[in-house]
Design a binder for these strands. Structure first.
Length: 555
RNA sequence: GUCCCCAUCGUCUAGUGGCCUAGGACAACGGGUUCUCAUCCCGUAAACAGGGGUUCGACUCCCCUUGGGGAUGCCA
């Protein structure tokens, strides 16, 4: 509350802090294939969270896998995001452009002795990040108490700066060689043999070991140490932790000089000022490591929210190789982005009430990470189809027509579409359409002779009295106004009545005769759209097909 | 092997110790409305993985088992 410069500075820094604390999230796909449903769902949750919080949603293209990253994959990624309405703020950051900065960070870590060079398998020297021995300085690291680990005496315990190597004991008493565990996992370590004699006290040799010495301790059966763990509170899973003795130092720069994912990812999160990381829970293991990296880089780690995976019909998580889960395929199959968006939002999240059909604004308003599910979800194509049908039924007729028209263009009859007629058909079919590709079945409106379903022809047209009634109907239809649905209905009912048929019982046979199939919009509306010419031509054609009147030259 | 995570109808889910005789949605099935289909309406079937605790009381808390997934890469 002071005055003058001090007060002003305070105000300024508060504003500055507020700017820095505004929510900034990112979607960080690697463009190595088609974006699948699981990825895009993560993007969507990031987007919803950012919009709900009034924050920023950033895009980062993690294209450091130069072998497999392609410009095409980047293009489809952007395309699909735009289609789904996942607009990002600021310019996308391409990770490869950050490589110099990643390398500088690695150099600094090396200088500060937080990382070291290591040659392995004759691959040259990579830079490896060390889980710090002084781990307690890292927020989230806690002491769990003393721990004991049985080791197999046949294999020596190896102590090196890179970590502790030892063989565990399997249930059957065999030696199981694990990898090397980071030294930081074994505070106060004492190695002892079967007689309980202490073979080694780590503290006594620590300086030597970090200086490069490596020790082999044969005949050990027990490791006694103080266990430490790294913990964090996940916004969806709650408190998560992992003991350090189950971790190992990890490579941050390959021997070819290129930084690896862990370094790049963390550096970019720092430079982009990311406040919340929302990603698939296949990343929780990475988080434990990244927490150490953030600290070593002198940065505050972001909050984390790990989303459960979306699994396929077989119950397996979607992978980049699962072609069938490519988001773009849903567009091609005739789904509406709004519907897919809505459906995906409900996969692993719910608003806490019975609402399901929710538009974007509603989802943004309702979205909260604490209502995200902890268990994996399986995609249900039938529910998506149902939801899509709801959206289609309610959408703007002009938009529906345009969408259906685009799909119809790829039909065999797509090059013979009368636009005015198409408009009438679309209006007629909209409420009963589930996906745009349903329009592929509208061909009978646009071709001279539709394809007839033989079963329908047989079962409907061969009924007693039907052939006669249809022939009689042919006469009266010559005089009916086809624009008058009521008049059409009257004519059909009259023909049925005259033939001694139940009212309405001529409807399905008539439908089969003029459309070739058994389902569709109301038969009189269909007739009206079809028009007199095609109706009059098709009825006798169908009767001939059914063998009810003699063929007259044409097949 | 080790470590981490997860577990309610076929599927998505509600449920935060008594309101649960476990609710909803999609799908399924039956019925009604309608000329068919879709819509709409009514109804039926369908789940707390198993075992131990804790508690007066457990779907809810703890432990174990089982099952699933992830990590354990100089992939991201």
């Amino acid at each position: 509350m002071g005055m003058g410069a001090f007060g002003f500075r305070r105000l300024h820094s508060n504003r500055e802090r507020k700017r820095l604390m505004g929510v900034r999230v990112r979607f960080a796909p690697s463009p190595t294939g088609h974006v699948h449903i699981g990825n895009i769902r993560a993007a969507l949750f990031n987007w919803l969270f950012a919009r709900h919080e009034g924050g920023q949603f950033l895009l980062r293209v993690e294209d450091t896998d130069r072998e497999r990253s392609t410009p095409e994959a980047i293009a489809t990624l952007l395309d699909v995001m735009q289609w789904l309405g996942l607009a990002y703020d600021e310019e996308p950051l391409f990770q490869t452009s950050q490589e110099p900065s990643h390398c500088r960070a690695a150099a600094r870590l090396l200088e500060e002795n937080r990382a070291y060079r290591s040659a392995k398998d004759g691959e040259g020297e990579a830079i490896v990040f060390r889980i710090p021995w002084e781990a307690e300085q890292v927020p989230g690291v806690e002491v769990c108490g003393s721990a004991e680990l049985a080791v197999h005496p046949d294999e020596p315990v190896e102590v090196r700066a890179e970590g502790l190597g030892y063989a565990g004991v399997s249930k059957k008493g065999k030696a199981v060689t694990g990898g090397v565990s980071c030294l930081a996992g074994f505070r106060d370590l004492e190695v002892s043999d079967g007689g309980g004699r202490c073979l080694l006290v780590l503290a006594d040799v620590l300086d030597r070991v970090f200086a490069g010495d490596s020790l082999r301790v044969p005949g050990a059966v027990c490791l006694r140490f103080t266990r430490r763990a790294i913990a964090f509170t996940d916004l969806v899973k709650g408190r998560l932790s992992k003991p350090l003795d189950s971790m190992r130092d990890f490579v941050i720069v390959r021997s070819d000089g290129h930084p690896v994912f862990h370094l790049g990812n963390v550096c970019d999160d720092v430079t982009q000022g990311i406040t919340h990381i929302i990603r698939g829970d296949d990343h929780v293991e990475n988080t434990y490591r990244h927490l150490f990296l953030f600290h070593a880089l002198g940065a505050e780690p972001p909050r984390y929210a790990h989303l459960p995976m979306i699994v396929n019909a077989a119950g397996k998580p979607y992978s980049k190789r699962d072609g069938d889960a490519f988001v773009g395929d849903f567009r091609d199959k005739g789904y509406l982005p709004e519907a897919l968006f809505n459906y995906l939002a409900l996969l692993g999240w719910n608003p806490g009430d019975a609402r399901e059909k929710m538009d974007r604004a509603e989802l943004v308003r309702a979205f909260a990470l604490d209502r995200v599910q902890q268990s994996p979800a399986r995609m249900d194509p039938r529910k998506l189809l149902n939801l899509n049908g709801q959206y289609m039924a309610e959408m703007d007729p002009g938009a529906f027509r345009a969408g259906a028209r685009a799909v119809a263009a790829s039909a065999p009859w797509g090059d013979r579409i009368d636009e005015a007629l198409f408009g009438r058909v679309a209006a007629l079919m909209q409420t009963r359409t589930k996906v745009y590709t349903d329009a592929l079945g509208w061909g009978y409106f646009f071709v001279d002779t539709p394809e007839y379903d033989p079963k329908a022809v047989r079962s409907l047209l061969c009924r007693t009295g039907v052939a006669g009634a249809l022939s009689a109907l042919l006469e009266s239809l010559c005089r009916v106004d086809f624009a008058d649905v009521g008049a059409l209905e009257q004519a059909v009912q009259a023909a049925a009545g005259a033939a001694g048929l139940e009212p309405g019982s001529l409807n399905q046979p008539l439908r089969a005769a003029v459309t070739g199939c058994t389902v569709g919009a109301g038969v009189f509306e269909t007739l009206a759209v079809l028009g007199r010419k095609r109706t009059l031509a098709r009825i006798p054609h169908a009767l001939r097909l059914a063998g009810l009147v003699p063929a007259t030259g044409e097949g």
